[in-house]
Amino acid sequence: MPINQELLNILACPKCKGAVAMVAEKDGLACAACEVVYPVREDIPVMLIEEAVPAEKWAKGIRNAKD
Score class of each variant (00 low, 15 high):
Met1Cys: 09
Pro2Ile: 03
Asn4Cys: 13
Asn4Lys: 15
Gln5Leu: 09
Leu8Phe: 05
Leu8His: 06
Asn9Lys: 12
Ile10Gly: 02
Ile10His: 03
Leu11Val: 08
Ala12Glu: 11
Ala12Ile: 14
Ala12Ser: 15
Ala12His: 08
Cys13Gln: 02
Pro14Trp: 12
Pro14Asp: 10
Pro14Val: 11
Lys15His: 11
Cys16Phe: 06
Lys17Arg: 15
Gly18Ser: 09
Gly18Lys: 04
Gly18Tyr: 02
Ala19Thr: 10
Ala19Ser: 12
Met22Ala: 10
Met22Leu: 15
Met22Lys: 10
Met22Cys: 01
Val23Pro: 00
Ala24Leu: 10
Ala24Lys: 13
Glu25Gln: 06
Glu25Asn: 09
Lys26Gln: 15
Lys26Gly: 04
Lys26Val: 04
Asp27Trp: 00
Gly28Lys: 00
Cys34Gly: 01
Cys34Phe: 07
Val36Ala: 03
Val37Lys: 02
Tyr38Pro: 01
Tyr38Leu: 09
Pro39Tyr: 10
Pro39Lys: 04
Pro39Asn: 10
Val40Phe: 04
Arg41Val: 15
Arg41Glu: 12
Glu42Pro: 00
Asp43Met: 12
Asp43Glu: 14
Ile44Ser: 04
Ile44Pro: 02
Ile44Asp: 00
Val46Ile: 11
Val46Ser: 01
Val46Ala: 01
Val46Gly: 03
Met47Trp: 07
Leu48Arg: 14
Leu48Tyr: 09
Leu48Ser: 12
Ile49Lys: 12
Glu50Gln: 14
Glu51Tyr: 06
Ala52Ile: 05
Ala52Pro: 05
Ala52Lys: 03
Val53Trp: 14
Val53Arg: 13
Val53Glu: 14
Pro54Leu: 14
Pro54Ile: 10
Ala55His: 00
Ala55Asn: 01
Glu56Val: 12
Glu56Lys: 13
Glu56Gln: 14
Lys57Glu: 15
Trp58Gly: 05
Ala59Lys: 12
Ala59Asn: 07
Lys60Met: 11
Gly61Trp: 14
Ile62Gln: 05
Ile62Leu: 14
Arg63Asp: 10
Ala65Tyr: 02
Lys66Arg: 08
Lys66Pro: 00
Lys66Ser: 12
Lys66Val: 10
